[in-house]
Design a protein around this nucleic acid. Sequence first.
DNA 1: TTTTATTTTCAGAAACTTTTGAAAGTTATA
DNA 2: TATAACTTTCAAAAGTTTCTGAAAATAAAA
Lengths: 167, 167
Amino acid sequence: MKLTDAKYKFIQEWGVLGSNWGINRAMAQIQALLLLSPKSLTTDEIMEELKMSRGNVNMNIRALIDWGLVFKEYKPGERKEFFYTEKDVWKITKQVAEERRKREILPVKQMLEEIEGIELGKSEEEKEFKKVTSEIQSFIGKMDGVLTKIASADKNWFLKVLMRLMN
Amino acid sequence: MKLTDAKYKFIQEWGVLGSNWGINRAMAQIQALLLLSPKSLTTDEIMEELKMSRGNVNMNIRALIDWGLVFKEYKPGERKEFFYTEKDVWKITKQVAEERRKREILPVKQMLEEIEGIELGKSEEEKEFKKVTSEIQSFIGKMDGVLTKIASADKNWFLKVLMRLMN
DNA sequence: TTTTATTTTCAGAAACTTTTGAAAGTTATA
DNA sequence: TATAACTTTCAAAAGTTTCTGAAAATAAAA
């Protein structure tokens, strides 16, 4: 296999992985391309490599910047914008953990807090409702804590925890 | 707020959470309904409560069974099938962790192993490729380990780990 | 066996998401 | 200022996923 084959294989698979995670394929593929590139790339280079339209590349680059995974760079004498991605897998993980906490955990937490305040009767249905929602609330609280911790931790802490986990 | 309002709010939000996670909305809503129900439900009851077609309920119930989250039950004297869900949040987490490991982590692991075998030259591009893919491979390996451990661990282990994480 | 109850399947419709490409907007240079 | 280089936006097209409902298949009861 040549580098080009391996590279496109990696980009494709990263795209599939992304779409299993609610991140759209184009966004994941652009990030994969930037991960593999030793230098920062322009919109036109990305369009050319991934055969995507300008609009699509622009939209998804902005989404990646939004997620804190991709950054802009200006080169002296060049008018174009150059893009590069965070390459440290640990930092990417932190960034994604924080983003998912905000987008996925917080809304459920909030909903459960609203629900918590409701006065309920004593029917079997109501007791079950109370029981299940309280348990989920406690669990979500713990998850939120873990993700917050990960988002603010450093690499060594994480590696140590992994070690202990696997002991 | 009445029970019914709270209940539908919970079901809606669970559906949104699910779709952020690549689990489809109907599937997540059916599971939410079963979570809140003190008794097992028939296809017709689910159709009625969630205003979904028979085909849709049937398809998604089967997907939930596939994921190991929902079970069938037969009641004496009844011809219909009754469905109930796992309610222990810890067991649900284990189940989902294992399922996601299989569906998301393993394919990437496999792709990276294939890529690992490729003989590469000394160009900057090739060196970068090697570096990035090896780092991801090592990280994915650790993640796989953690998810495997979670899938086979018991609740106390997990709680203890959470405690230590948060120390 | 026939009838009835129930579950499963699947083609087409509806809903939703992604992508394109051209036009509008912005910024830098001459 | 005008022109050129570039980025952003957005309506429409293409693609994908989900949902419906009726027909086919299966299983139980008469």
